[in-house]
Design a protein around this nucleic acid. Structure first.
Length: 420
RNA sequence: GGUGGCGUGUCUGAGCGGCCAAAAGAGCACGCCUCGAAAGCGUGUGUUGGGGAAACUCAACCGUGGGUUCAAAUCCCACCGCCACCGCCA
């Protein structure tokens, strides 16, 4: 959704953004034209309504003798008011439909282009060379350690399903505990949110637009399973006015995430890189729009801190405009080195949604200049399966055992995962 | 799942067709009083959108959406939510 006032005042900026995203530029003019008509319809309705309010009072105060004549014209006016009301409602509706088509206005610094046109911001750490022995992939290691069971996962729940068992399950708990302890230290409020949400929450966060295919829907109950705790965290303050002195308000949500992964049949079929269900610790921040850019950098830094603590080589990319999703005006992904794929693969991601999401969810703050929309940002602290993949593959030994990163050792009470 | 009750401003709570943006109290802000404070007294105190330099003014909003009416917080219908009791389950 776009802010009409902003569009009226900055049509060129909006056009440029649409162009950068490869989206329809002509809707800018459509909206502007419709806005004119809409505004005059509002005006007409309000004028008639004012007339009616006055007349109604007159009718109420009139004695029986005058009343009959007054009622005649009042009835006539009521019909005109009704018509104006309907017309206005239709135009408002049409306007809303149109404004919802807009994606967030791009950050001018975001690279323009499609998925492949990302910009690499930095590399951290050096990918390990496997010269002494051939690296095993996480599936093989998961079997040797009794950590991951995809065969039984498939038996019970179909493809892209898995069990974490033994050291795999323990590793998840350790990762979550470590992540939450970091988040709490950084001032986040830890949250365990609902993963079952209503249409308003889903729609408000922007997941029923172009991402709708990826969402599990429970039709019988008109509910959705969230693909990320970003949804319930963003909707937490839906329809609220936040105290400006408390911004930024930061939450760290732990939840299960559900993804249909429709249309990805050929991709990442082996292992647990792409699965229908996983757990994740997500950072979410409500902040002043003027601080959103700095907040975005902070979220990225916390993500990097986590990867550093896991002792995994990675790179940070500035995601290109065509791959941003409709809510983000800029997005940084962290990609961990995955030895057996000889590639960097996305493990965490942080988006600046500026006021886009908050506008739909009606989340505002009040300061001396009035009531304004807050900015929202989100970032992954840790998505369990992909982090497990990265840890197993990067820290493996020739015999299939896996060294545990120092940061997790106290949570696991051990320095390495042994074979079963 | 059944029955009954209820959703009003920051909060408590009145209003149950027109004079209601909505009594009263609490809270909050400012002022008086005081050496200072409390108490007391006085004044003010919703949101959104439009017009205006401003004083101000117009419209909308009493859970949400429809309906009846010249006129709806108030009547009718549907939905959502909350509370209580019963049943069922853990």
């Amino acid at each position: 959704m776009i802010d009409i006032k902003f569009l009226r005042e900055n049509p060129e900026a909006v056009r440029a953004s649409q162009r950068g995203r490869g989206e329809d530029e002509s809707i800018v003019d459509k909206v502007l034209a419709l806005d004119e008509i809409r505004r005059s319809a509002i005006n007409e309705f309000e004028t008639l309504r004012a007339e009616q309010n006055t007349l109604s009072k007159t009718v109420g105060a009139a004695n029986n003798k005058d009343r009959a004549g007054l009622l005649e014209s009042a009835k006539d006016l009521a019909i005109r008011v009704k018509n104006a009301f309907v017309k206005r409602a239709e135009l408002e509706e049409e306007m809303k439909t149109l404004t919802l088509l807009f994606s967030n206005i791009l950050d001018p610094e975001a690279p323009i282009g499609s998925e492949a046109d990302f910009k690499i911001i930095e590399h951290v750490g050096t990918p390990r060379e496997f010269t002494e022995f051939a690296a095993k992939d996480h599936m093989e290691l998961g079997k040797l350690l009794g950590a991951i069971d995809t065969e039984r996962g498939a038996k019970v729940s179909g493809s892209r399903s898995y069990y974490l068992t033994g050291s795999g399950a323990l590793l998840e708990f350790a990762l979550v505990n470590y992540a939450i302890s970091c988040a709490v230290k950084a001032g986040f409020t830890p949250v365990i949110p609902p993963v079952l949400v209503n249409p308003a929450a889903m729609e408000g966060t922007g997941f029923l637009g172009q991402a709708a295919d990826n969402v599990y829907q429970l039709e019988r109950d008109e509910m959705y399973l969230v693909g990320t705790s970003e949804v319930p965290l963003a909707a937490f303050h839906m329809d609220e006015i936040l105290p400006v002195e408390k911004l930024p308000m930061r939450y760290a949500g732990f939840s299960t995430c559900f993804r249909r992964e429709a249309g990805t049949y050929g991709r990442d079929t082996r292992g647990i890189i792409r699965v229908h269900q996983f757990d994740k610790v997500e950072m979410f921040s409500f902040c002043h729009p003027d601080q959103a850019k700095e907040e975005h950098k902070r979220l990225l830094q916390w993500e990097k801190d986590f990867l550093n603590a896991m002792e995994i080589p990675y790179r940070v990319i500035d995601v290109a405009s065509g791959d941003l999703g409709s809510s983000a005006n800029r997005k940084f992904d962290i990609e961990a080195w995955i030895p057996t794929q000889n590639a960097y693969r996305e493990v965490t991601s942080t988006s600046n949604c500026s006021e886009f999401q908050a506008r739909r969810l009606n989340i505002r703050f009040k300061d001396a200049h009035g009531t304004k929309t807050v900015a929202t940002l989100n970032g992954t602290l840790v998505a369990i399966p992909r982090m497990i993949v990265a840890i197993l593959e990067n820290h493996q030994n020739p015999d299939g055992t896996v060294n545990i990163p120092k940061a997790l050792q106290s949570f696991l009470g051990s320095e390495r995962f042994e074979l079963v």
